[in-house]
Design a protein around this nucleic acid. Structure first.
Length: 484
RNA sequence: GUUCCCAUCGUCUAGUGGCCUAGGACACUACCCUUUCACGGUAGAUACAGGGGUUCAAAUCCCCUUGGGAACGCCA
């Protein structure tokens, strides 16, 4: 494939906070498409809003993308043929392009103040007209205006819109979209402080960076009109656009902070796997022709295509996400799962043994009840020698008249055990001894025993739990329970 | 207000005029496995927003209504 016609896509976040799942999905689809087509994935930073953009936020976004493994071929930090990739470093380019527009009579300086515009808009609203710019400065003599600007007068640069024209483009997801005439008024291209505006830099950058496909969120659909006008004014070919549906919360409102966790960073902290998050959000607006739902990243690249995208909005279903995560988690080999879990255990100060066999055995015991790595943290806390806590339910169980004989028998049996640890096979034997000595069976046998091991009557099978805990600790815990 | 976008089980979706008495997945219910909790297995319930057309035939095409969303910024 020649580089001339190969796919070039970009993700262009504005650094104002952590990466949201919506942004992550946009990045994912772009990235998948680039991988699939052997194209380039470009990370461009849209930081022209100086009020809200911060370097910290940029670092967070970059960190989240790296966590997800959505790495870029060209970008603000790795360079590329169209450097710089940070809009705040491209200001002279936008200025130059805006001047080209002015020279060509396609844009003009506007001296109206914000207050002027506010008033005009109000009047327009009242009179039932669309709140477009009324064109006060449109017919000013350009040379005159430029002189005023040189003299220090502040002016924004406005694009001259041909309000008689309608615009149609073919959306990759929505097919034909038509904007009728007179949808927008003359819009700002450069602010009076010289900073360019989103719609302008977006086109200048996409054009100059030779972007071939623009996959972005649906809220940009109506921006496409203005952007088409700008492409036209530069005589640049239009990229292919695809507008992704938005992601909603359970209440069918656009997903936002009040729906709980919505940023990749939060999901990471809650113990979700990056490949599971990617897998799950890939399904929000796309489906595989094979109806497969669990994918590795490579499978996703292989199966992904733009012709299976849905235009309707999707609700973020936390339960299904949990299932996807659990499925990925349980499919991980134990060593791999352990290496993912350890940072969480450390962060939450849960102790563990350095012994690989022990780790693997514990994981084997807990895997089936783990949906997230944080579930793992909770589970490992139960077998941490330094944590023992009896739950309310555990307390109830200990009040049973059957509890005491079981615990006494248990302590006795464990004490007489010749080794520091009890194997699964040995436990089968010990369990019978406790049964005989205490005269209890069924739940009256197992529940008090389990409370003495993990502090609660329900949970992991005892035969899997016991081999993980040192005999001394088992006795200690049972004795503690007797005293309650 | 105007314009644009959207509309299949609770949720994600399959479906591109006959294969649809609408398929899959999550969730849900029941049963099985089981000392418990999970895991796993089996079975089940649940949807084409409404109304008009077009057609021999419509979830699929067209129109209207309704509902949801977005845009109309010197935010992105």
């Amino acid at each position: 494939m020649s580089s001339e016609n190969s796919v070039r896509v970009r993700f262009a976040p504005s650094p104002t906070g952590y990466l949201h799942v919506g942004g992550a999905r946009t990045a994912l689809y772009n990235w998948l498409y680039a991988k699939k087509k052997g194209g380039k994935f470009i990370l461009r930073v849209e930081d022209t809003d100086q009020e809200r953009s911060t370097i910290e936020a940029l670092n967070m976004q970059v960190g989240d993308l790296k966590w997800l493994g959505l790495l870029w071929d060209e970008g603000f930090d790795v360079g590329g043929p169209h450097t710089p990739y940070k809009q705040s470093e491209r200001l002279s380019i936008y200025k130059q392009k805006a001047n080209e527009l002015i020279d060509a009579g396609k844009a003009y300086p506007c001296f109206c103040t914000e207050q002027d515009l506010e008033k005009k808009k109000e009047i327009a609203q009242k009179e039932g007209r669309p709140p477009h710019y009324d064109g006060t400065c449109r017919n000013l003599d350009v040379q005159q205006s430029l002189k005023r600007m040189a003299g220090g007068d502040k002016a924004a640069i406005r694009f001259k819109v041909d309000s008689s024209k309608s615009y149609t483009f073919h959306d990759l997801i929505r097919n034909e979209v038509t904007f009728p005439p007179n949808m927008v008024g003359d819009f700002i291209v450069l602010r009076s402080d010289g900073m360019p505006v989103y719609n302008f830099c977006c086109v200048v950058d996409d054009g100059m960076m030779k972007i071939t496909h623009v996959l972005r969120a649906e809220e940009h659909l109506s921006n496409t009109l203005r952007q088409m006008m700008i492409y036209e004014s530069f005589n640049w070919p239009l990229p292919l656009f695809g507008h992704l549906s938005i992601i909603l919360g359970e209440d069918r409102q656009k997903l936002s902070k009040r729906h709980g966790a919505t940023s990749c960073h939060e999901f990471m902290k809650q113990g979700y796997l990056p490949e599971a998050l990617l897998n799950f959000i890939s399904l929000l607006g796309w489906s595989s022709p094979t109806a497969q739902e669990i994918f590795s990243i490579d499978e996703l690249i292989k199966q992904f295509d733009l012709d299976r995208m849905t235009p309707s909005p999707a609700v973020f279903d936390q339960k299904k996400f949990n299932w996807v995560n659990a499925t990925h988690l349980r499919a991980l080999p134990n060593e791999e799962l352990w290496s993912r879990l350890v940072p969480y255990l450390d962060e939450h100060k849960v102790g563990y043994k350095k012994d690989v066999a022990w780790q693997s055995q514990a994981l084997e015991a807990f895997k089936s009840s783990m949906e997230t790595l944080m579930d793992g943290v909770q589970l490992f806390r139960y077998i941490d020698d330094n944590h023992f806590e009896v739950s309310a339910e555990g307390l109830e169980t200990l009040k049973w008249k059957e509890a005491e004989p079981v615990l006494r028998a248990w302590i006795d049996v464990v004490r007489n055990h010749p080794h520091d640890f009890i194997t699964e096979a040995e436990f089968a034997d010990l369990q019978n001894k406790v049964k005989d000595q205490s005269g209890q069976k069924g739940k009256f046998l197992f529940m008090p025993m389990r409370v003495s091991v993990i502090g609660k009557p329900h949970g992991t099978e005892l035969k899997l739990l016991i081999p993980l805990i040192h005999k001394k600790v088992l006795i200690e815990r049972a004795e503690k329970c007797l005293k309650i």
